[in-house]
Amino acid sequence: MNQNPVFRVVAKILFAPIIMFGLYVQFHGDFGPGGGFQAGVIIAAAFILHALVFGLQAGRQIISARVNLWMMVLGVTIYGAVGIVSMAKGGLFLDYTALTGSVGSGQHIGILVVEFGVGLTVTSVMLALFHAFAGFVEDRDK
């Protein structure tokens, strides 16, 4: 979409580091500032940058609309599933201690998985929002 070589080179250089930073924020959220919500937005920003510079079609080749929708669903499902599993293990809904039986490891695993679900949902929703707005007329004209 944008033929300016500066944009293209900078976008290519930044794409991977932004995603890596997002993953760091996602999985380091226990120890420093960060978590699923922030990480989701940062990773979505990387894909939005890619789509802004290389065009919506190129963005859709990485993550298609169908996959994007399933990612949205999967994130919420992962979150809910953690609750169901902890109920199956004899605890209350979303009682992570029941996952392994000990407070330390159970809470750690539960929080990590739940934050992953949040991150997945937020990433895919933000991406879907951007594609819905940017591709509004294009979709209707097809």
């Binding site: 919500f37 933000m126 819905a132 707005f133």
Partner: peptide, 20 residues
């Protein structure tokens, strides 16, 4: 507030979609 911000942008986007 952390969660409200992310929910806020999602609902703002819904409003914008209605405007379009």
């Amino acid at each position: 507030i952390l969660t409200a911000i992310v929910v806020g942008v999602a609902t703002t986007a819904l409003g914008l979609a209605l405007i379009l």
